[in-house]
Amino acid sequence: MANKILLIDDDPKICDLVGAFLKLGTKGIELITACDTSQGLFKLENDEFDLIIVDKNLPTRSGLDLIEQLRKSFKYNRIKIILLSGSLTSADVSFSVQNKVSDIIVKPFKYVQFMEKLKKHLDT
């Protein structure tokens, strides 16, 4: 079963890196990327995704804002979301719990842990 992931991150090098990681790993994970909130919403509306990875720091509008908006909407209330962040603060953790974020990946990340977390949330 092909999995489709949406990655919302404004750094193209990070998007490239995740793409390269996914190519190495389990076959059958398709990666779509967006560089900010509005592009991300656009792609969401025009496709079906199994998982969204949202970077905390996005231009114009923070990734946290986007996550809140998704959770408040009817359509994306339950979609799996992973937060990508440069740090793991208690604020991040409590936000994640409140907004039913499935996991937090902290930058910089290692291949093995990254892929494990993805697989974990794609399989359930």
């Binding site: 750094d11 090098k13 990070i14 890196l17 440069g86 930058k107 910089p108 990340f109 290692k110 291949y111």
Partner: peptide, 8 residues
């Protein structure tokens, strides 16, 4: 960010 890119 660049650290992540370098490490990855």
């Amino acid at each position: 960010n660049p650290l992540t890119v370098a490490s990855g």
